[in-house]
């Protein structure tokens, strides 16, 4: 039996197709603006980490993160910067740090944890560090936080 018809993308024949971009509001910033923001945040995070202000460092990197198409460089830079914070935080400090974050920041942090777990071996990703954060974050922010990562189309 010819089953090739199953590979036909029937959506192209639909004039009223729903596009991915209609499902979320795109970033109002220009891609170059997003990248320069990410660079500035990297500097801000380094300064905060030098003062061992982990909450400040996390808050600044988790504020308006790059999402959507065309900003891959800014996304990589942000993930890299975030990983330096996660990797340098002592396990005992994690619950206090997570509690100090706002709910939106907690949701964004969870997005990056899942992103990191999906890219084993990239940069300084350490599975055990990410899992440690994930455990503490889930205890504090609940399963709702994970559900929001799955539904949110503003992928970081």
């Amino acid at each position: 039996m010819d089953v090739n018809f199953r590979k036909i993308d029937i959506d192209v024949y639909d004039e009223d197709i729903l596009h991915e971009t209609e499902l979320y509001d795109s970033d109002p910033r220009d891609p170059s603006q997003v990248l320069s923001d990410a660079r500035q945040k990297q500097v801000a995070v380094r300064t905060a980490l030098a003062r061992s202000d982990i909450v400040g460092a996390l808050s600044s990197i988790l504020d308006s993160p790059p999402y959507g198409p065309g900003v891959d460089e800014a996304k990589d830079l942000t993930l890299q910067t975030l990983l330096t914070i996660l990797n340098t935080t002592k396990a005992a400090e994690i619950p206090g740090v997570v509690k100090a974050l706002s709910q939106d920041e907690q949701d964004t942090l969870m997005k990056y944890l899942y992103k990191g777990m999906a890219m084993p071996g990239w940069g300084d990703i350490s599975g055990s560090v990410l899992l440690g954060w994930h455990e503490k974050l889930t205890e504090i922010a609940g399963t709702g936080c994970i559900v929001r990562v799955m539904t949110d189309r503003r992928l970081v």
């Binding site: 399963t143 709702g144 559900v147 949110d152």
Partner: peptide
């Protein structure tokens, strides 16, 4: 209520009140 574990309440003319929950939707 939506699948991002949130409940929103709308009073026309003022900003939407969003409650994000720590639980399942």
């Amino acid at each position: 209520a939506s699948h991002d574990s949130s409940v929103s309440i709308v009073y026309p003319g003022s900003p939407v009140i969003n409650i994000k929950l720590p639980t399942l939707p």
